[in-house]
């Protein structure tokens, strides 16, 4: 790998070093301002020197990283400038700190500026890697993101597919899955068990035409996120109803062409009047 690129990729790791060091210095300094009698156990100026050094190093690595051009230019430019300003500021801070401590207003200004710079630079950097609004997303939960579930790893995907399932992601980025069983061969029971490892991901389960019985279905009990289920053209019968009733989030059940009787469906309807159930009576 290209050396510069390698160096650049260290940036996300490296930035935390000056942030931590400088925050420590700022905290100690803040305490000292509040309580001039406070005797810091550590040499704050020394910490500032180390922190500024680390900041310069971060800037360099950040510059190297920016060369690969994968980031939006505007945001990148802002973060870059803030990075320069921050590191120069802290060098200055370190240089004048011991002299400035005696002047309360100056001291406070320095500390506050330091905190402000550190936060904005860090935030801009965060936005670059995690997308804009990453931070606020926590404050006001974004409609699109609130349901997102961690995406599966390759191995997890493979484990589901190996069991014969087809995974149809519901939408990009939300981690929710629709699992389809048209191609299930062999033991459906085993295949269903495999699914119970992913209770948070599976929202829809299409078992249409699979050769499954009520007994096979037992393991879907653990799929607590399940919203829709298709059991049409299977050997499901009335005794699966109790099981279906356990699934709190279900809002769609398809029992077309199964052995489920009319009374079974009525029973379902009575217990869960809001669920859409087919065949509709």
């Amino acid at each position: 790998m290209n050396l510069i690129e390698f160096f650049g990729r260290l940036h996300p790791v490296m930035v935390h070093l000056p942030i931590g060091i400088l925050l420590l210095a700022l905290t100690l300094d803040g305490v000292e301002w509040k309580n001039p009698k406070f005797q810091s156990p550590l040499n704050i100026q020394f910490i500032l020197w180390i922190g500024s050094g680390a900041a310069i190093f971060s800037v360099l690595s950040g510059y190297a990283l920016s060369q690969n051009g994968d980031y939006p230019i505007d945001q990148l430019e802002q973060h870059k400038r803030l990075g320069y300003i921050t590191s120069i500021f802290f060098l200055f801070y370190a240089a004048v700190r011991n002299w400035m401590v005696s002047k309360r207003i100056g001291h406070l200004t320095l500390t506050l500026c330091g905190i402000l710079l550190l936060i904005t630079t860090g935030h801009k950097g965060g936005s670059l890697t995690h997308g804009e609004g990453y931070l606020y997303a926590l404050v006001e939960p974004n409609k699109d993101q609130k349901n997102s579930t961690a995406t599966l790893t390759d191995e997890e995907v493979k484990s589901i597919e190996d069991a014969g399932w087809v995974i149809a992601p519901i939408a990009a980025g939300d981690g929710k899955l629709r699992i389809v069983g048209f191609n299930i061969e062999g033991s459906a029971q085993q295949a269903l068990k495999q699914l119970s490892n992913f209770p948070d991901h599976i929202e829809e389960l299409k078992l249409s035409y699979a050769s499954i019985t009520n007994a096979d279905l037992q393991s879907i009990r653990s799929l607590t996120a399940l919203k829709k289920i298709w059991l049409d053209h299977t050997r499901a019968s009335d005794s699966c109803i109790a099981l279906l009733l356990e699934l709190e989030k279900l809002n769609y059940i398809n029992l077309t062409s199964t052995s489920v009787t009319e009374s079974g469906i009525i029973q379902l309807k009575q217990k869960k009047p809001r669920i859409t159930i087919y065949p509709a009576l």
């Binding site: 995406t151 599966l152 390759d154 992601p169 981690g175 899955l177």
Partner: peptide
């Protein structure tokens, strides 16, 4: 984007 949806 499609692939990210399910972890590829």
């Amino acid at each position: 984007a499609f692939l990210n949806g399910c972890g590829w």
